[in-house]
């Protein structure tokens, strides 16, 4: 094969925009296999959730990097509010095609992103014997990956929160930040 035009090295080429959509079915089957893979290797529900979280962390690390390039002009957020908004809008829109339903403050160091029906759980019915298992732990891992690599170490967990008047509970992603994050925020001022 002969290439036309002058050769451009890959670092000089502009970053591709990236396809905005992939097949939901293909993703759903892949995710289903990921859950089954970890389920056979985990001895408890907590361990399964931790394994899913670990699997998501790698996605988060890469997402921060590529979206900082694509959408933020090669800059990353250094303030807590900024990074939370970035996850709530940019990351969510790129991964799930929509903005998360809400972002709330619980405490000074505790924040919650809420989603009525996370994409990863769309086709999943958790059997009764697995209790409160929420496969969106994978998404919690993505959030954790973004926060960790951006310099906001935090504990992130996913859990079901019942909504009044609705059969299906929404999923909350609870983030608890390390004290050093808040110290730095206080130092930087408003």
């Amino acid at each position: 094969m002969q290439r036309k035009g002058p050769q451009i090295s890959s670092v000089d080429r502009p970053l591709p925009k990236g396809k905005s959509e992939v097949s939901l079915s293909a993703f759903a089957f892949l995710f289903s296999e990921i859950v089954q893979y970890h389920r056979t290797r985990a001895s408890s529900i907590a361990e399964l959730e931790r394994r899913l979280e670990d699997a998501g962390t790698g996605v988060g690390v890469r997402m921060l990097e590529i979206l900082s390039y694509r959408e933020k002009g090669n800059r990353r957020e250094i303030r807590l509010q900024g990074i939370l908004q970035f996850i709530n809008t940019n990351i969510w829109r790129c991964l799930f095609g929509k903005v998360a339903d809400s972002l709330e403050v619980y405490n000074d160091d505790e924040y919650v992103i809420s989603d009525r029906s996370p994409l990863v759980n769309r086709f999943i019915s958790v059997p009764k014997d697995l209790g409160d298992l929420n496969c969106a732990a994978f998404v919690a891992g993505i959030i954790k990956g973004v926060l960790d690599i951006a310099g906001f170490p935090a504990e992130v967990s996913a859990y079901y929160a019942p909504v009044e008047g609705q059969i299906h509970p929404r999923t909350n992603f609870f983030m608890k930040f390390s004290p050093e994050v808040l110290d730095r925020e206080a130092r930087l001022g408003t």
């Binding site: 079915s25 089954q36 086709f123 999943i124 019915s125 697995l130 496969c135």
Partner: peptide, 23 residues
Amino acid sequence: SDYVMKNPFYEMEMPIRCELFDT
């Protein structure tokens, strides 16, 4: 094919117990 086959907790050829499929 959506709510049974894409559910990681469904075992092939076994009775279907998926809440989302039922509804």
